[in-house]
C-alpha cells in the first residue's frame, strides 16, 4: 500500500511551518534560491542567510540516524547531466526570482499570480524534460 503520502504531508507541514516562522518572524519570503542567491550576489543580511542554510544542512544530519534507513538522493551518476542540470537550476531560479519554495510554497499560498504561473511553467518544463529524456530518447 502507498503510505508515503503521510510522510510527504508531515514533511510538507514542517516546510510550511518553517516558511511561516521566517515570514512572521523576519518578514521575509522563505525561498531557498533567493536566500542562497543573495549570498552569491553579496546582498544584505549575510548572517541570516548563512544561519538559515546552516539549519537546512544540519537537521537532516541530526535526524538521519533516527530513520529506518540512511537517506539517499539517487542522483544520476552522469556528471554531464549533473552539471547541466545544476547550471539550469541555479541560473533559472535566479532569473525567474524563485523556485519551489519561494514561488511554489510561499507564492501559491498568497495566491500570487507570478508564483502560480512560475510553478505551472517549471512543473510543465520538468514533466516535458522527463517525457523526452526518459521515454522518447532513453537518456536519463
Amino acid at each position: 500500500m502507498y503510505t508515503e503520502w503521510i510522510w510527504g504531508l508531515a514533511g510538507g507541514l514542517l516546510i510550511g511551518l518553517g516558511a511561516a516562522v521566517y515570514l512572521l518572524g523576519n518578514g521575509r519570503i522563505m525561498g531557498a534560491s533567493g536566500i542562497l542567491g543573495g549570498l552569491v550576489d553579496g546582498s544584505d543580511r549575510t548572517l541570516e542567510r548563512i544561519s538559515f542554510i546552516a539549519g537546512v544542512v544540519a537537521t537532516p544530519l541530526v535526524l538521519s540516524p533516527l530513520l529506518s534507513s540512511a537517506p539517499k538522493t539517487h542522483l544520476t551518476s552522469n556528471f554531464a547531466v549533473i552539471v547541466l542540470a545544476g547550471v539550469l537550476v541555479g541560473a533559472g531560479t535566479r532569473i525567474a526570482n524563485g523556485c519551489t519554495s519561494g514561488h511554489g510554497v510561499c507564492g501559491i499560498s498568497r495566491f500570487s499570480f507570478r508564483g502560480i504561473i512560475a510553478t505551472l511553467i517549471y512543473i510543465a518544463a520538468g514533466g516535458a524534460t522527463i517525457a523526452l529524456m526518459r521515454h522518447l530518447w532513453g537518456l536519463i
Binding site: 542554510i53 545544476g86 547550471v87 533559472g92 531560479t93 504561473i117 511553467i121 518544463a125 516535458a128 536519463i140
Partner: peptide, 24 residues
C-alpha cells in the same frame, strides 16, 4: 519569469533536485 522558470524546470526534471533539497 517565463524563461527562467523553463530553465529551472528543465534542470529540475534532469536531476530531480531543486535548490532546497540540493542544500539539505
Amino acid at each position: 519569469l517565463v524563461i527562467g522558470s523553463i530553465m529551472f524546470g528543465m534542470g529540475w526534471g534532469l536531476s530531480g533536485l531543486c535548490p532546497g533539497p540540493a542544500i539539505a
